[in-house]
């Protein structure tokens, strides 16, 4: 039973990571580096809180979070794809913008520099059989957990089983070749980044919904963990989700061991160290899409 409860805790923690990491894989497979996950999630989390607060309907909050993720990603896409600005710097700029903007809104709307009032979270879905399973029943009643499980399959299929996915990957590897075939690099890259925004926005909604509020800086570096998971998962949505589960388990263990003599802080560093090893080629080779990070300039 304890094992099941622990597994359930690990899954709960890894849901926002998985959503954001899958989004990043879509953006990066198209050739746009996604350092901006942190900002996308943060804006999504605040938007959920604002929507749920204003309407007292959590689903309106989810809609707002999706919209916020989309708008923020659109800003990222405009800068990196259309203006061909450096993708890493733009991502860092968007993270800083989200940190400042959410704090600004928090102070102006909720008159607090630390947290929003309590807002409704998403209701549980009472499903036959699933909800009655011992240990994991509560987990499988959470709408966003189920949605995430479905999305892992769907996003993976989108990238590897559809024409759009094939084209997106081609553009992330050799944009010149894809453009020669008549594909629009701009449009596909926009699509990749915007889908990433939707998924990361949803990840933010999950965080706010679970916590029933927004707190300043509540993503706390989760965007970077998701980015790391995507790398360990070798830029594949399913691989990324699996890495998120691993990182989630490490975090669940760390929370369990907090306050004990065990150096739980070192467990906290584990995802980052694993990622560095993967990048250096010690855990299989993690190779980025060839054209990732390079703006496509048809005139050059």
């Amino acid at each position: 039973m304890d094992v099941l409860l622990f597994a359930a805790a690990a899954v709960r923690i890894s849901v926002p990571y998985a959503l954001a990491a899958m989004g990043a894989s879509l953006s990066e497979r198209g050739g746009v580096v996604c350092i901006a996950l942190e900002g996308l999630m943060l804006n999504g989390a605040l938007a959920y809180t604002l929507g749920a607060y204003a309407t007292q309907n959590p689903w309106a909050g989810v809609a707002c979070a999706l919209l916020a993720g989309l708008l923020t990603a659109w800003l990222h896409a405009e800068a990196t794809v259309r203006f061909r600005a450096d993708q890493i710097t733009t991502g860092l700029g968007i993270n800083l913008l989200a940190a400042g903007l959410t704090r600004f809104v928090l102070v102006r709307v909720f008159h607090s520099s630390s947290n929003s009032p309590r807002v409704p979270g998403l209701p549980e879905w009472r499903l036959p059989v699933l909800s009655d399973l011992p240990g994991v029943g509560a987990l499988l009643s959470s709408p966003l957990v189920l949605v995430t499980l479905a999305l892992v399959v769907l996003v993976h299929a989108l990238l590897f089983r559809t024409v759009f996915g094939l084209r997106l990957r081609a553009i992330g590897e050799r944009p010149e070749a894809a453009a020669t075939l008549g594909l629009s690099v701009t449009r596909h890259r926009f699509a990749g980044v915007l889908l990433c925004g939707l998924l990361a926005g949803l990840a933010g909604a999950y965080l706010s919904s679970e916590q029933h509020s927004f707190t300043d800086g509540m993503t706390g570096g989760r965007g970077y963990i998701a980015l790391a998971a995507m790398i360990v998962g070798k830029w594949n949505p399913m691989g990324a989700a699996a890495a998120c589960l691993l990182f989630g388990a490490a975090e669940a263990l760390q929370i369990k061991l907090q306050g004990s003599a065990f150096p739980s802080e070192l467990l906290q560093a584990l995802p980052y160290l694993i990622t560095m090893l993967a990048l250096a080629g010690f855990i299989g080779r993690a190779v980025a899409p060839r054209a990732v990070g390079t703006p496509y300039d048809p005139e050059s």
Binding site: I94, L96, L97, A99, G100, F104, L106, V107, S113
Partner: peptide, 8 residues
């Protein structure tokens, strides 16, 4: 917090 927005 406006200043953070400005910096970004």
């Amino acid at each position: 917090e406006l200043v953070e927005v400005l910096m970004a």
